[in-house]
Simulated assay, not measured.
Amino acid sequence: MNIIQPSESTIVFWMDIKDVPKLEYALKHGNYNTRKLAAEALAHAGQCSSVPVLLKAMNDKVQNVSIAALNTLEALGCNDDLVVTITRKRFNWVKEVRDRAAKQEANKDKKHNIYRWERASKKSFEIVKERLKRPIR
Results as ranks from 00 to 15, higher is better:
T87K: 00
A41F: 01
D80E: 10
K129M: 11
D99T: 10
K110N: 07
K110W: 01
I127A: 12
D99N: 12
R137N: 15
M58K: 08
G77N: 11
E24C: 14
A38Q: 00
N107D: 14
A45M: 05
P135S: 15
T72I: 04
P6I: 05
Q47C: 07
Y25A: 14
W117V: 00
L54A: 04
K133W: 01
V12M: 11
S50C: 14
V51A: 03
A101H: 06
K89Q: 13
N71L: 06
F13I: 03
C78A: 10
T34K: 02
W117R: 09
P21Y: 08
E24V: 14
W93N: 10
E130H: 02
H112Y: 13
E118R: 09
V97P: 00
K95C: 02
R116E: 07
T87W: 03
D16H: 12
D109S: 14
D99V: 06
L70P: 02
T87M: 06
E96K: 15
R98M: 06
L42G: 04
L55R: 08
A75T: 09
N33P: 03
F91R: 14
K108D: 13
K110I: 14
I86L: 14
A120M: 13
F13V: 01
N71M: 02
I17W: 04
K18M: 05
A39F: 00
G46R: 13
F125S: 12
K61F: 09
E74Y: 03
P21T: 10
I3K: 08
Y115A: 01
L23C: 01
Y25H: 09
N113M: 12
P52K: 10
A26E: 03
S49G: 06
V51W: 05
A39E: 00
H44D: 11
Y115G: 02
L73G: 00
M15E: 15
N59E: 14
K95R: 15
V65K: 03
W14I: 03
A106Y: 11
V83S: 03
E74R: 12
S121N: 08
S124L: 14
R119L: 10
D19R: 13
K111T: 07
T10F: 03
Q104A: 15
I86W: 02
E40H: 04
V12R: 13
A68P: 05
Y32A: 08
N2I: 13
K56E: 15
L55S: 07
R137G: 10
K111H: 06
S50G: 01
A68M: 07
A26C: 08
S66E: 11
H44C: 07
F91C: 01
E118W: 13
V12K: 15
L23G: 01
V84F: 10
T85W: 07
H29Y: 15
I4Y: 07
V94K: 02
S9H: 12
N107R: 11
W93S: 08
R35N: 03
P6Q: 09
V97N: 06
N31G: 07
V97T: 10
F13S: 12
E105A: 15
N71E: 13
L55K: 09
L54V: 05
S124A: 13
E40G: 06
V62I: 09
Q47I: 04
F125M: 08
R119P: 00
